[in-house]
Design a protein around this nucleic acid. Structure first.
Lengths: 138, 138
DNA sequence: GTCCCTGCAAACGGTTTGCACCCGG
DNA sequence: CCGGGTGCAAACCGTTTGCAGGGAC
């Protein structure tokens, strides 16, 4: 099963201690939808394995973000988490609040260089805001 | 004095009822640094005019965002607010957490169109993450 | 064996709410 | 005068913390 290998190799790559709770959270993120809140993750993972507490889900998410296995997205209300299997940007609907993924594209290098000046850029985050297809049809 | 005119004309443009609390908040945003949290705004405005309560600052900020006079930035922890006198992007330092403004630049139209598909885009938000000049020098 | 991780519950910070009063149009 | 805006305090929700016990390496 592919998921399991992905999770194990992610731990191997990352120098993070592999605990069952970390395994459960990361594997859930690989298997489920992006943009989940910590609370959603806690509910799902704790249901499957009650040996995972709320505080630990928060701890684990921080560790995974720190180890670059998971990406944190600051939205209104609660933070949202994505396993970083592939890079992508986001679209947020003004009307219904849905967060949709957009395929990855690069900011042209010349523009990026001009904008960044002397700062060292690690990541470019692009979020489009507007009206999603579903809301636009009404 | 220029500020006052800006604030008044912003209310005229926006169809928002002009109350003294709204005036105080918007005028403070015009006169002070960007990226202030609601709490910072409350502290400053309430000090100058105790007739402004915390709840009202939150109400007012929502109304101003709704009326497009102010932009809301979702960062870690608390939301941050900018009066939208000019458009700009942001840089957030991984090390010290500072939020710096970047001059406005457009995402090339062809790229934007490709990314958006059929969605109606109202705004493009670009946030660069990395290490700021000050932290990079250490 | 050591240190880091975990579980629990209490605390915390930012934000929202309910309701009576007030003021702008 | 009407309807939306305001002040206050309590409630709420997402998140963090302190500490005792447990598991990874």
């Amino acid at each position: 099963m592919k998921d399991r290998q992905d999770v194990e190799s992610a731990f191997a790559r990352s120098n993070l201690r592999r605990t069952s709770q970390r395994y459960d959270v990361l594997s859930w993120l690989y298997r489920h939808k992006r943009h989940a809140t910590a609370e959603e993750i806690f509910a799902a993972v704790n249901k499957a394995n009650p040996r995972v507490s709320r505080a630990t889900v928060y701890n684990v998410l921080h560790a995974l973000v720190e180890g670059r296995l998971v990406r944190q997205l600051n939205a209104e209300g609660a933070a949202r988490y994505d396993a970083t299997l592939d890079r992508h940007h986001h679209f947020i609907c003004d009307t219904c609040g849905a967060i949709e993924d957009l395929e990855w594209f690069d900011l042209p290098a010349a523009i990026l260089r001009g904008a960044a000046g002397r700062r060292a850029v690690r990541e470019t985050e692009i979020t489009l805001h507007g009206v999603c297809e579903r809301c636009g049809r009404k």
